[in-house]
Design a binder for these strands. Structure first.
Lengths: 199, 199
DNA sequence: TACTTTTGCTAACGGTGTTAAATGGATTAA
DNA sequence: TTAATCCATTTAACACCGTTAGCAAAAGTA
């Protein structure tokens, strides 16, 4: 009867406890380490009860992801509110985006699929020539023959790599973008950065 | 005796068969689906023999990663060789890098840690406002008040997102870059893109 | 009080990485 | 040739994992 509301509230309470416990584990050990049994343990239940609240482990991770997006959206709106000029707003928002990624790396990894399985420390375990070397060599040449020989090669390389790796991973995770748009961005970015080198 | 060489060759042969089997699975089903037992099965052995050749699963994945880097380096050198001007070389190399990512997505994912755990189809499962919306709104405003109101908002948004997400994920995977360099690139990229909008 | 529904647990299935012990065949030494 | 050693390989086991089925006890309802 009148207890119905309390029961619903209790159910919701357990749900929240599950999410909180899951998040506690993810935050501390990464989402790979999150397991149904660990969650259950930390809230004094057994694993199967979780399935009364979430279809499966994935659904639980999706819920955490959702909360991540809420948090990020919130921060972005706050950053926007701090300025009036669109250019300033945009700048502040992207810096906020950056900060979010490193304040809440586990959220960011969950949301955008950034993760290494095997820690490879690339460039040290790699006896072979790294892409960075091959690219830097050419950038070096380009810089030397440019009007601005003081250009930081490393910086330009990372700029290149960021745009292109970013575009690639966005496409891989969130597959189904327009190929035309990708090619345009890719081409514009590459020629754009080259132009900033050549001056 | 004289069979010693053959024995060494046989050992190496098994090692190669392990790697080949591992790669076959990774290529078809993704690295998450690769398991010691599956590899062993596909070469008519049992799982523990793999530990005679690799310390653990991670070491095996690192080996695949290594081969990925070799393949990429090879392609980059080929692309470079096709041109004489550094600017043209650079352009060709980055396009090659792009193509490699989509020709060999499993290599790329392994090498640079791009992967989604829970398939979230962000934007559809998300009832809340997405970052893309919040950003696009502001970019829209900026474009409207600019000298070039025909600018493609979507394109600019993806350009922003690519650089910044790229920079973030590079830092997360390959942690330990210089903060100063990051901040410089971040700032330069943001102000640079904004400038291309405002004209 | 008797019945039904709910709640949580135990046990189990099939899978994972990994290690220790047993097996069996080939190689070597007597 | 026989005995001893070695090495590759297997079996068995441990400790996990996600997930499901069945059961017991508790709670709510009549």
């Amino acid at each position: 009867m009148g207890s119905k509301e309390r029961i619903i509230k209790q159910k919701e309470d357990v749900r929240n406890k599950i999410i909180a416990a899951a998040w506690r584990i993810v935050k501390k050990e990464g989402w790979q380490a999150m397991s149904m049994r660990k969650i259950a343990d930390s809230i004094d239940y057994t694993a199967p009860i979780i399935y009364g609240y979430f279809d499966n482990k994935d659904a639980l991770l999706v819920e955490l992801t959702r909360q991540g997006f809420l948090k990020l959206a919130d921060r972005l709106r706050q950053a926007k509110a701090k300025h009036k000029l669109p250019a300033k707003q945009l700048e502040a928002m992207w810096f906020t985006y950056w900060d979010f990624a490193f304040d809440e790396p586990q959220y960011y990894k969950l949301m955008f699929g950034v993760d290494v399985n095997c820690y490879c420390e690339m460039g040290q375990c790699m006896e072979t020539e790294m892409p960075s070397d091959i690219f830097s060599e050419v950038i070096e040449e380009l810089v030397a023959s440019s009007n601005n020989p003081n250009t930081d090669v490393c910086k330009k390389y990372y700029l290149f790599w960021s745009v292109i790796h970013g575009l690639i991973s966005i496409n891989m995770v969130n597959k189904g973008k327009s190929d035309k748009l990708n090619q345009e961005i890719l081409k514009d970015a590459i020629t754009g950065i080259i132009r900033t080198i050549v001056v």
